[in-house]
Computed example of a mutant assay.
Amino acid sequence: MRPLASLLLAALLPLINLAEADPAKTLRIASFNTELSRKGPGLLLRDLQRGKDPQIAAILQTLTEADADVLVLQGIDWDYEGRSLAELRNLLAKRIPSYGHIYAARPNTGMQTGHDMDGDGRLGTARDAQGYGRFTGQDGMAILSRLPILRDDVRDLSALLWQDLPGATLPTHPDGTPFPSRDALAAQRLSTTGHWVVPVLLPSGEPLSVLAFQATPPLFDGPEDRNGLRNQDEIRLWQVLLDGGLGPTPADPWVIVGGANLDPDKGAGRRAAIADLLRDPRLQDPRPRDSAGHTDTVNWGTSGPMRVDYVLPSQALQVVASGLIWPANIPAKDGDADRPASRHALVWTDLQIP
């Protein structure tokens, strides 16, 4: 079921140890920013149901090639009844074994605050939401799982106020006053999209906690560096959680999965945040590579390729293999050049089941 993944494994043999691997006893965790978000509510569901959209077809092919057991998606619009996610699952079920369990909480994207959150003097814009969004649920997250999701044990940290994160670094005006205002900052949630702790039940009966997130790009702000600081603290949240600073810590085993929008070595942003996380001795970094040996997971064009998407298992788990799958190009509209179905690669990691 994983033809491209098999080729990737062959390319990675010098870099990973497969001596003890048993395919029947491995679990594949994947993260993929699908970039399926549309310009208005209901449009993604419409396109999924029509079955004629080349981008959706290419994304479905990428997900089919990955054939992950637990799949964390970003860039997928949320709706109140979960109809878009259910339709995506139904389409996938025609290709690969079905995902019997799904999870998608309301994201912070598009959730209006009633405050001028970016200091531009206007209210009700996409930047005045808890997370950038022109409508509720734009660019949300979702989890598809073949393993049972322990819904009663899910922790959604998305409502955590930024100022309540221990050690938070908050944006200020040059005179040191809160940016954009004291009231706005007091209402600002930390999570741009969401931070979830979602336990899934392993065949052994032991839970595996999936720590899912999607952080803001550290760009599109002013000298106050609001988005850069927020991105830094969104990434750092996981270490604060593991330190016990946000209540109960996730029990081993766990895996951090999602989009940090930050490369440890290049590009804008406070790169020390992701570098510190990757060096944390409680987790391991498989450094997945594509068939050409590259570790970059996105290509935004002018800013070049970067590594911004991650699957980071705890030290209690044995990594068997890892890799990247780039989605196919699709025909562009209006005579432009073809473009990738998503600028992001799907990131996958195979873990030995305890």
Rank of each mutant, 00 (worst) to 15 (best):
L241V: 03
R189A: 10
A215L: 04
R226K: 13
A168K: 05
V210Q: 01
A212E: 05
G244M: 02
H344L: 07
S209F: 02
P97K: 06
M1G: 13
L13P: 02
Q214T: 01
T113M: 00
P340H: 08
K25M: 04
H344C: 09
P207C: 03
V72H: 15
A251C: 02
A272T: 09
V308R: 15
L60I: 14
A126G: 01
L71F: 09
G137E: 09
R289E: 04
K94P: 01
V198K: 00
W254V: 07
G301Y: 08
I76K: 00
A186I: 02
S204V: 10
D183C: 00
Q112Y: 04
P331W: 10
E35M: 08
P281H: 10
T249K: 15
S322H: 10
L242V: 00
G114Y: 03
S191V: 01
L201K: 14
D22V: 11
L219Y: 12
I76P: 05
A159G: 11
G140H: 03
W238N: 04
T169P: 03
D233N: 14
P340M: 06
R189P: 10
A316S: 14
A57W: 07
G269S: 07
A272L: 10
P281K: 14
T113D: 01
L4D: 12
G304P: 12
F135R: 12
S342C: 12
L4K: 07
S322G: 11
G119S: 08
R151G: 04
D334V: 08
G42Q: 08
L170H: 05
V197R: 11
H294N: 15
S291R: 12
L43Q: 10
Q214Y: 10
G82Y: 05
V320G: 09
Q55C: 08
R270H: 14
L317W: 04
V347H: 08
A215F: 03
D233S: 11
V197C: 14
P313A: 11
G244H: 08
R271S: 09
L92I: 14
A24F: 00
L324D: 10
Q352G: 06
L147A: 05
F179S: 07
L190S: 07
D164P: 02
G75F: 07
A105V: 13
Y99C: 08
W78Y: 07
D175L: 09
H115P: 04
T169F: 00
A10S: 13
Y132Q: 01
W78C: 02
Y103L: 13
I76H: 01
A58R: 12
N90R: 15
A187L: 02
A93Y: 06
T349A: 03
A260Q: 05
S37R: 13
S181W: 07
Q55D: 02
T349I: 07
G267C: 06
A5R: 15
A19I: 00
D350M: 03
S6A: 15
F220S: 12
L147R: 15
R134S: 11
D156A: 08
S145P: 07
L170Q: 08
D285N: 15
F179Q: 10
E224H: 11
G301M: 10
L91F: 00
L36S: 05
I29H: 01
E206S: 12
A19V: 01
L202Y: 06
W238H: 09
E81S: 09
L346W: 11
A66W: 04
L317M: 14
R38E: 10
L85E: 03
A129V: 14
R230E: 06
L208F: 09
A260R: 04
A321K: 04
A66S: 13
